[in-house]
């Protein structure tokens, strides 16, 4: 394997007494689609939040594209090329779809107060480029016709797409999607799958949290399974699917093995 794009080493995070992440180490190669699955409460989103700088990990850390990532500095993570979407959609509700994507360009543009006031040729050119790129991205994710609607008026599936467009606007090398298919119907899921495959084909590495096992297994090159904050297994989908520890994490241990019985977590696939 070539040098990894992202290398997580011994990442740990506690919330009071709860160990949300225990010594999680994994690495993602450039250009792959990497799935992160696990039952509810396994620590997947916590891992995302540590990676994107919203939380400072209590132990371990990340190396991204060969250099360490600074903990708890979300805007710097975005600058380095890590973009994300949120499990509970977090759009700028009272901005239009286009403006949402334009905000995503913030980190790759420079105009300041003086430029905004004087509107000099460079600022005007930058503004035009921002708008153009926003329109391209809206078209790319397939919601160009909703460009001038407020984000909050988009359908659920379109909001998820808009979040992806906004994340792509930051020119990420690693795109982290937190349950992008949640709440989507079968048609929308199929379209989402095509979209994610397309994003990868364009050279962006994708880290995917998803409950939809079919989507994950069909799309991902490798899959890691988290359970109770620990990395259970990391391998290609076909192997992960048959791993007894994964089956146990999702469905609970068979009663004769578990002894106490009912040790399983209420996760579902």
């Amino acid at each position: 394997m070539s040098a990894p794009l992202l290398d997580a080493r011994g990442v740990a995070k506690d919330f009071g007494g709860v160990k949300a992440l225990k010594d999680v180490s994994l690495s993602i190669a450039p250009g792959e689609i990497y799935g992160l699955i696990g039952p509810n409460g396994a620590g997947k989103t916590t891992f995302f939040n540590c990676l994107t700088g919203l939380y400072a990990p209590d132990g371990g850390g990340f190396t991204f594209a060969g250099a360490p990532l600074k903990a708890s500095a979300p805007h710097q993570a975005a600058r380095r090329g890590i973009a994300r979407t949120f499990q509970n959609i977090r759009l700028f509700a009272h901005m239009t779809a286009r403006e949402n994507v334009m905000v995503g360009r913030h980190v790759r543009t420079r105009a300041g107060v003086i430029g905004a006031i004087l509107r000099d040729p460079r600022t005007r050119a930058e503004e035009a480029a921002i708008a153009r790129r926003a329109d391209e991205l809206l078209h790319y994710v397939g919601i160009a016709d909703r460009a001038h609607d407020l984000a909050k008026h988009l359908s659920y599936g379109d909001q998820r797409r808009l979040e992806i467009a906004r994340a792509l606007a930051t020119e990420p090398r690693l795109l982290c999607l937190d349950e992008p298919a949640a709440g989507m119907n079968a048609t929308e899921r199929a379209a989402l799958r095509t979209l994610i495959a397309g994003i990868r084909a364009d050279g962006v590495t994708v880290l995917l949290i998803e409950h939809d096992v079919k989507l994950v297994m069909g799309l991902c090159d490798r899959v890691a399974v988290l359970d109770y904050g620990q990395l259970v297994v990391e391998d290609v989908p076909a192997v992960v699917q048959r791993d007894p520890r994964v089956i146990e994490a999702y469905l609970g241990a068979a009663p004769d093995e578990a002894g106490q019985g009912g040790a399983g977590e209420g996760g579902h696939a």
């Binding site: 805007h75 975005a78 759009l91 509700a93 995503g104 913030h106 790759r108 606007a169 930051t170």
Partner: peptide
Amino acid sequence: EDEVAAKACGIDT
């Protein structure tokens, strides 16, 4: 609108 999302978009809030 959303400070967390703004940070994630790379805005130095």
